[in-house]
């Protein structure tokens, strides 16, 4: 039980994908102008990350490890994720046109989001969470994917909130746009790095 708790906490805060591990910076900066689109993107990434970690774990554990082909994991995971996003897109388009409309172009873009590949890769090794180390099983992989995705959502929604306020602030010309956004992100990252001192 304690392991699962650690994975949840690690994904959300301690090993926050964006602010501590610096994965998925592209959508983090690109889709964080408004909180509602940021939330949409976050939920889409969460969904794909949870699914991808399960599928990648199955492929890794039951195909690559028995054949001693673990060095193929990068290319295999890329294959899995790209196909998965295609399938997810088709399924969503068929069964929930509203969700498909809301996600729009973000869904195919997730294929190239390194956070998704990152979580699949991390699941193959022991995960460091604060002082503890956890090796994941299938359920752990799912939890890690889902809660890392939620951690991504948390970070992107927080930044979107900051950027909405910044749009109305009197920012010096040299700092307008991305410079001030990156500075805000850096301060958030410093705040999040404090979670790494949590000990269990």
């Amino acid at each position: 039980m304690k392991e699962y708790f650690l994975i949840i906490l690690g994904g959300l805060l301690i090993n926050n994908f964006v602010l501590v591990k610096f994965y998925g910076i592209c959508p983090f900066l690109g889709v964080s102008k408004k909180t509602d689109t940021a939330l949409g993107m976050g939920m889409a990434v969460t969904f794909v990350m949870a699914l991808a970690s399960v599928f990648a774990y199955v492929i890794y554990e039951y195909l690559l490890v028995p054949f001693e082909l673990t060095y193929l994991k990068t290319i295999a995971f890329i294959l899995v994720i790209a196909s998965l996003v295609q399938i997810v897109e088709m399924v969503i388009k068929r069964f929930s046109p509203t969700l498909y409309q809301a996600l729009g172009v973000y869904l195919p873009l997730i294929t190239t989001n390194c956070a998704v590949l990152g979580v699949a890769m991390l699941n193959t090794e022991a995960i460091k969470i604060g002082a503890a180390e956890v090796t994941v099983n299938l359920f752990g992989a799912f939890l890690n994917g889902a809660f890392s995705g939620l951690g991504f959502t948390l970070a992107i929604v927080l930044l979107a909130g900051v950027r909405e306020k910044l749009a109305r602030a009197d920012v010096p010309k040299a700092f307008q746009g991305f410079p001030i956004t990156l500075m805000a992100a850096a301060i958030m990252a410093m705040a999040f790095s404090a979670f790494s001192s949590l000990a269990f």
């Binding site: 492929i59 195909l63 054949f67 082909l69 193929l72 290319i75 295999a76 294959l79 899995v80 196909s83 295609q86 399938i87 088709m90 399924v91 388009k93 068929r94 046109p97």
Partner: peptide
């Protein structure tokens, strides 16, 4: 050959699933 075959098999499997699904779920 063995790794290549395995990778190819996985790719073919996914391709098959995608083709079937795109036929079945075509909107």
């Amino acid at each position: 050959l063995i790794p290549a075959a395995i990778l190819l098999a996985v790719a073919a499997l996914f391709a098959l699933v995608i083709v079937v699904l795109s036929r079945k779920l075509s909107v």
